[in-house]
Amino acid sequence: MRDNMSNLIEDLFHGNLRLDESIHPEQDEYYEINSQISDTMQNYKTKLPDTEYDALEQLIDLIGQSTSMYVEAAFEQGFRTGGRLIIEVLAKP
């Protein structure tokens, strides 16, 4: 167990730990929703003038940035809560 923990700590130190790359939602709906988003964007691309489509893409990029910041904050909060839980469990006799 110590070797796995050491590797995890080393990976974290060297920036090799990319948790976001290992997230794969298990809900079937996730993939269906992404397909619908792609289809809808393709539909807008064919119907909107280039300037309006570019503005829509910029809006979607901003929403993505906002969502990423929220997910990061949620991850940090969950990690801290998990750490506090471990401390509380280990502190009890």
Results as ranks from 00 to 15, higher is better:
R2I: 12
D3C: 07
M5W: 07
M5S: 01
M5F: 12
M5P: 02
N7G: 08
D11A: 02
L12E: 01
F13A: 11
R18F: 10
R18L: 11
R18K: 08
L19H: 07
L19W: 08
I23P: 06
I23T: 07
H24S: 11
E26S: 07
Q27A: 14
Q27Y: 03
D28E: 11
D28M: 04
Y30L: 02
Y31M: 01
Y31H: 01
E32C: 02
I33F: 14
N34L: 15
S35I: 01
S35R: 08
Q36E: 04
I37D: 03
S38Y: 01
D39F: 04
T40Y: 14
M41A: 01
N43Y: 15
N43M: 13
Y44S: 01
Y44T: 02
K45I: 03
T46C: 12
T46D: 15
P49K: 11
P49Y: 07
T51F: 15
D54L: 11
D54P: 01
L56D: 03
L56E: 01
E57P: 03
I60R: 14
I60W: 14
I60L: 15
L62T: 04
I63Y: 14
I63Q: 15
I63P: 12
G64M: 11
Q65N: 07
Q65S: 10
S66K: 13
S66P: 06
T67H: 14
T67L: 15
M69R: 12
Y70G: 06
V71L: 13
E72L: 12
E72N: 09
A73E: 11
A74P: 04
A74K: 07
F75S: 07
E76P: 04
Q77E: 13
Q77S: 08
G78L: 07
G78C: 05
G78E: 14
F79N: 05
T81P: 02
G82F: 07
G82L: 09
G82D: 06
G82T: 03
G82K: 04
L85M: 12
L85Y: 12
L85W: 10
I86W: 02
I87H: 05
I87T: 01
V89A: 13
L90H: 02
A91E: 06
K92P: 05
